[in-house]
């Protein structure tokens, strides 16, 4: 596998000359392999958008270098622009144009032949479930529809690299699912995708590799499974009503850790082990308020490695005590 996007030691600050504002990017390195999806995951202000803007030639880095398709993003910006598409964090559509007019314009600017533009526009409007509204001014559309149109505009050409900056923010679950399908489709066609997201689930579902960004650098990087493993194993978590209960339950369970009203015991997740844990709890006579088997989630990774919480709840298997 070869890297199609690389960044080495990217640095960027926005402070005026001489000011001491902390850098927004501070030695950021990343690599996107050809044909893969890389998710940049990070809290607000981490530097995700700044990274994407540098990689898509909109912004010059103060330090470091980056290449896309082997071209330097500063020196060969024009060559880079020929092989990428960018869907920025801000929706980029004209409210006074219809959906079809918006897409047609982008297709013409991408220098596709008229016939190809026409077919591709119809195809994308259908794929994004926008065909019915296609001839209405986009200003009358819902936020989610506009976002979908924005994404469609990035797909008119078949770019070698697609940059998606928080592509599903503001989308309902069905539209989000549809977008994921579209991304998987373009990846199957050979496009490499770099996306930023605050949704852990999105990174988990779409990306082969996840890079955690915090304070302008990558603080962790790996496959979703590798990252989760860094945080440890699954556990049975019990939430208890009284402090005395916490002590009783913790004493009954070997290897238990206590965090406030919560007691956690590592588990391999098997029915037999979970059942043995639960019967030990039952023997103490304490009825937990709530219990669950909790797999390590990217949320934990986030929390452990950045000290900030992520935004979405991890997938859990939940049970409620009798």
């Amino acid at each position: 596998m070869t890297a199609i996007v690389t960044a080495e030691g990217l640095g960027k600050s926005f402070g005026r000359r001489g000011s001491t504002s902390p850098p927004v990017l501070d030695g950021l390195d990343l690599e996107l392999q050809e044909g893969a999806v890389l998710a940049l995951l990070g809290p607000n202000g981490a530097g995700k958008t700044t990274t994407v803007r540098i990689l898509s030639t909109l912004l010059k880095p103060d330090a470091g270098r980056a290449t896309v398709g082997g071209f330097d993003v500063v020196r060969d910006a024009r060559r880079v622009r020929e092989i990428i598409s960018l869907t920025g964090q801000q929706v980029a559509v004209d409210d006074k144009l219809s959906g079809a007019e918006n897409l047609t314009m982008m297709g013409r600017l991408a220098h596709l032949p008229r016939r190809v533009v026409r077919d591709r526009v119809a195809e994308l409007l259908t794929a994004f479930d926008l065909a019915d509204a296609a001839s209405r001014h986009v200003g009358t559309w819902s936020g989610g529809m506009r976002r979908r149109l924005d994404l469609a505009a990035g797909l008119l050409t078949r770019p070698r690299v697609m940059f998606l900056d928080e592509p599903t923010t503001g989308l309902d679950p069905r539209s989000r699912q549809a977008l994921w399908d579209v991304v998987r489709g373009v990846v199957a066609d050979g496009t490499s995708v770099l996306l930023t997201t605050q949704y852990l689930e999105e990174a988990d579902r779409l990306a082969q590799r996840i890079a955690l960004v915090d304070g302008g650098r990558i603080v962790a990087d790996g496959t979703p499974a590798q990252l989760k493993r860094q945080v440890g194993e699954a556990g049975v978590e019990l939430t208890l009503a009284a402090a005395a209960d916490v002590e009783r339950v913790a004493a009954a369970l070997a290897g238990a850790t206590v965090d406030g009203a919560r007691v956690r015991v590592p588990t391999d997740g098997s029915v037999a082990h979970v059942r043995s844990v639960l019967s030990l709890v039952e023997d103490t006579g304490v009825a937990p308020e709530h219990w669950e088997v909790r797999a390590p989630s990217l949320d934990d990774v986030f929390l452990t490695l950045t000290g900030h919480a992520g935004q979405e709840h991890p997938a859990r298997t939940t049970g409620v005590a009798a």
Binding site: S56, T57, L58, M106
Partner: peptide, 13 residues
């Protein structure tokens, strides 16, 4: 100030 210019500047235009 909208996103339009970002998109256009990322294209070979």
């Amino acid at each position: 100030s909208g996103g339009m210019v970002d998109r256009l500047r990322s294209m070979p235009v």
